[in-house]
């Protein structure tokens, strides 16, 4: 079965062209084989076109775009990568800082969403109860209305939580306390303008997706084991922690990684909420390179940055490909 080997490293697969285990062209007339090969190669070229374009750009030592089409790197200069690592933005922020911010956000959001979602997914998958359908619709609506749709109220709400330094060693936390009348405090911390605030806002969209993804998988686990355990006198909590959770470990990992890679590239909320350069993420930096100053884009650095942002996502996705796609489809296919 091909799916068994699908999880193998992509590079290994490309190198081992003849390990497919399928005898080439035995029951296919040669002219048809060649015709189909032309088609598949054309499709492969279509797929590779933008990828080769950006890879070629990233290995260039010039900041300008070539005036003619180049899809195969003529030079292998790592200048762009080096520059991006040394000085990713015009602000004095190190690459490590940006990487840490991106990692903190995506890791935190993925983990929190997973921990909160798992018991809800279990309840929706295994119990029948009043209001079940209503609660489920309530929970799933944000899936269709992405966080951007909630961005205005989230912005305003998070913006209210601020720490002020009122002088004389007094610190006030708005909206609960504020500085004395007539004293204008110095703003120390604004929840909205911090990675924590953005993380909270992101969980709002990550959580329903995690519930949906986990429920779909739990639905495919046969009830037999749980029934046997129930007959042996296990209560629901024991069944949940001792039987269902261990069985769901692969999908828990996939859900976490989907949350992780989904928010690794997130930039809309971060761009809206964050103003301080030291809080920027890699995705925001990439946008910053192409946004306003469109005529002065350092193309090779931009391409290098694009590849740096894309690579972790691509590797994770390919490694977990089999589980991710089956998770996404079992979420909906049944009955």
């Amino acid at each position: 079965m091909t799916t068994a080997t699908q999880n193998k490293n992509i590079i290994a697969r490309i190198l081992n062209i003849n390990t497919s285990g399928e005898k080439g062209g035995r029951d296919l007339p040669l002219w048809r084989q060649l015709l189909l090969q032309i088609l598949t190669i054309a499709i492969a070229l279509e797929v590779m076109f933008p990828i080769m374009y950006i890879i070629t750009l990233s290995f260039s030592s010039k900041t300008t775009r070539p005036s003619a089409l180049e899809l195969i790197p003529k030079e292998f200069s790592l200048v762009a990568y080096q520059q991006v690592m040394d000085r990713p933005t015009a602000n004095p922020v190190t690459f490590t800082q940006l990487l840490t911010n991106s990692f903190f956000l995506s890791f935190g959001v993925g983990l929190v969403a997973l921990l909160v979602a798992v018991s809800a997914a279990y309840a929706f998958s295994r119990f029948k109860f009043a209001l079940r359908q209503v609660l489920m619709v309530l929970l799933f609506i944000p899936l269709l209305m992405p966080a951007v749709g909630l961005s205005a109220p989230l912005y305003l709400l998070l913006n209210q939580f601020r720490l002020f330094d009122c002088g004389n060693g007094i610190t006030a936390l708005e909206p609960i306390f504020s500085c004395a009348e007539g004293v204008t405090g110095k703003l120390v911390f604004n929840l909205r303008d911090s990675l924590w605030g953005v993380g909270i806002a992101m969980v709002a969209s990550a959580l329903p997706f995690a519930v949906w993804n986990l429920k779909g998988y739990l639905d495919t686990i046969p009830l037999d084991l749980e029934e046997a355990a129930a007959i042996d006198g296990a209560d629901s909590n024991q069944i949940f922690f001792r039987i269902v959770l261990p069985l769901a470990v692969p999908q828990l990992a996939v859900t976490f990684f989907l949350g992780f890679i989904g928010h690794w590239q997130e930039f809309a909320l971060s761009w809206l909420f964050l103003t301080k350069p030291e809080n920027y993420t890699l995705a925001m930096t990439l946008y910053n390179m192409t946004g306003q100053y469109a005529n002065a884009i350092p193309w090779n650095r931009f391409a290098a940055m694009a590849i740096i942002v894309a690579l972790p996502v691509a590797i994770t996705y390919i490694a977990l490909q089999k589980y991710i796609t089956s998770g996404l489809t079992t979420g909906a296919v049944k009955g």
Partner: peptide, 21 residues
């Protein structure tokens, strides 16, 4: 019987794995 199936499968998945951004 199509040749290089696995190579094509590996290439064709690439757009899915690159962030939309």
């Amino acid at each position: 019987g199509l040749w290089f199936k696995k190579v094509y499968r590996a290439i064709y998945i690439l757009p899915v794995v690159i962030p939309p951004l």
